[in-house]
Amino acid sequence: MAESILSLSGVRADIDQYHILHGVDLEVPAGELTVLLGRNGAGKSTTLRTIMGLTTVTQGKVRFRGEDITGQPTPRIARKGIAFVPENMGIFSLLTVRENMVLAAVDGPMDPARLDWVFDLFPPLKKFWNRAAGNLSGGQKQMLAIARAIIEPRELLLVDEPTKGLAPAIINDLAGAFEQLKQQQVTVLLVEQNFNFSRRLGQSAAVMNDGGVVWSGQMTELADNDDLQHELLGLGLGEHQ
């Protein structure tokens, strides 16, 4: 396994009076796509938000490239090279695709070569460049959300349930884009409920339950073991389309 770019050690986090994370231990290998799996309410989305400093850590450490980033402000964490695509996508509906992308390029004008690369990943964005983002389809909005996160080089991309509510054809397009990101060795931590999508893309995997990681390893190990899938997730990956 590659060296970890991100590690969580004994991370506990609360939201209001609720204890959500109960000692999360997680390693994210550099240059790989890691999938974070688990039932609804297991703590997957909270884990991503905690990494970004959006949920307060009450115990444990979050380390990025060996540096303790626990408790640092979210803008400082982002400037270290971590991008976050939340489940609600976080785009500006009243602004055009172009304006959304310009705002995301915080370090200055967009690099034309990198923008062309993004257009290769997500061709509809070029077609609808001057369209209000709120008028895009659900799949196109998701493409825009991911494009905003990668318009500048990032060392780590956190993505929360990108396929939720999307049609199979759009999911397939997204999978193709993530395959290209993998070829570029972009490190991705992906929270996902679509297990076939996860099996197709994941190199490493971790399974959460009740606010903690209960299993981690290679995705092939999980994908090839129906008994393990049922034990950890309650059903097999192959039972989902």
Rank of each mutant, 00 (worst) to 15 (best):
P109I: 13
W129M: 01
R98G: 01
A133M: 10
F64Q: 00
V106Y: 15
W117G: 05
L95V: 06
G165V: 04
V97C: 02
A132C: 07
R79T: 10
G81A: 05
P124H: 07
R154E: 05
A145S: 13
A105M: 04
Q59E: 14
R63S: 02
N172M: 12
I151R: 00
T58Q: 12
I69H: 00
I69A: 01
R98I: 02
G108L: 15
G139A: 12
A177N: 03
L166V: 07
I151D: 00
G66M: 11
L157M: 07
A83H: 06
Q140I: 09
D160Q: 06
V118M: 03
E155R: 10
G139C: 06
K80C: 00
F92P: 00
T70V: 04
L157H: 09
D68T: 00
R131W: 06
A132W: 13
L158F: 01
P168L: 01
T74D: 05
N88E: 15
D116Y: 04
I171F: 12
I171P: 01
A104I: 08
V62Y: 06
T163V: 08
T74W: 02
A177K: 14
L125H: 04
L103K: 03
M101K: 09
K80W: 09
P112S: 06
A133Y: 14
A167K: 03
A169H: 14
I150T: 06
G176Y: 09
A175G: 13
L115I: 08
L95C: 08
P123W: 15
L121G: 03
E179R: 09
T70W: 06
W129I: 12
F64P: 01
N135W: 14
P153W: 05
Q72E: 09
G108F: 07
L121H: 13
G165S: 10
P73A: 10
K164I: 09
R63A: 07
A167F: 15
P86S: 04
I151S: 01
R98Y: 13
A132F: 10
P162T: 04
R76Y: 12
R65F: 12
T70N: 05
F92D: 06
L174M: 12
R154C: 07
T163M: 06
A78S: 15
A175E: 15
L166T: 05
A175S: 15
A78E: 08
L158D: 03
A132I: 13
A113C: 00
R131C: 06
E99S: 02
F122M: 05
G66S: 11
P75K: 04
L121N: 07
G108Y: 12
I77F: 07
P75N: 02
G176C: 04
V106K: 08
N130H: 15
T96H: 13
P168I: 04
A78K: 07
F122D: 03
L156Y: 00
R148L: 00
D160G: 01
E161W: 13
K164H: 02
L95T: 10
A104P: 07
M101F: 12
G81Q: 06
I77V: 15
Q72N: 03
E87V: 10
F64A: 03
I146H: 03
N130K: 11
M110G: 03
I82K: 01
G60I: 03
P109G: 11
K141W: 08
G90L: 05
A113M: 03
V102L: 11
A147V: 11
N135C: 12
E155P: 11
A167W: 12
F92G: 00
L103N: 03
D107P: 04
D68E: 13
E87S: 08
R79E: 04
R79D: 14
L166A: 05
